[in-house]
């Protein structure tokens, strides 16, 4: 059985593709590993590809939500891509809608969306910075 899910670093982003049927401990390890990597690489975004996952139960759903929440605190955007239709239908029926998690159809679209989200954020920061500068000047 696989005992670790590899996390790849690409520029400001971290990429991971879950391709095995995860047992619970593996999911918990991944959660911790990913959090450490975000801090270590000061990642701005995380892309999680689940196109090979045949099921997502409440445990894995909870892991995804947890990753998204922790990443938000660490100022990294998370996007989950490639969920299979059967998995999506089942999750909805189960009662899990993974609110607040960004999604995309495939890795390509997901990456574009992630870059967009990070760029929007930087613009916002920039605008705020300028606002502060001008107000600081006005205060002089």
């Amino acid at each position: 059985m696989v005992d670790k899910i590899p996390i790849l670093k690409m520029g400001k982003y971290l990429l991971l593709s879950i391709q095995v049927d995860m047992h619970d401990q593996l999911a918990l390890d991944l959660q911790e590993d990913l959090t450490n990597q975000i801090v270590k690489h000061r990642a701005k975004g995380v892309l999680i590809d689940i196109s090979s996952l045949e099921i997502v139960d409440s445990f894995i759903g909870r892991m995804l939500s947890h990753i998204a929440n922790v990443s938000r605190i660490l100022d990294a955007k998370v996007i989950v891509v490639g969920m299979q239709p059967a998995v999506a239908i089942t999750l909805v029926e189960l009662g899990l809608s993974l609110d607040g998690i960004a999604t995309a159809l495939n890795v390509e679209k997901g990456m574009a969306r992630l870059e967009q989200m990070v760029a929007d954020d930087e613009l916002l920061e920039l605008a705020r910075g300028e606002e502060r500068d001008t107000s600081a000047k006005a205060g002089d």
């Binding site: 099921i55 998995v87 189960l94």
Partner: peptide
């Protein structure tokens, strides 16, 4: 299939 597998997992 996905539904029964997920239910079994839960």
């Amino acid at each position: 299939q996905t539904k029964i597998v997920t239910a079994a997992s839960e």
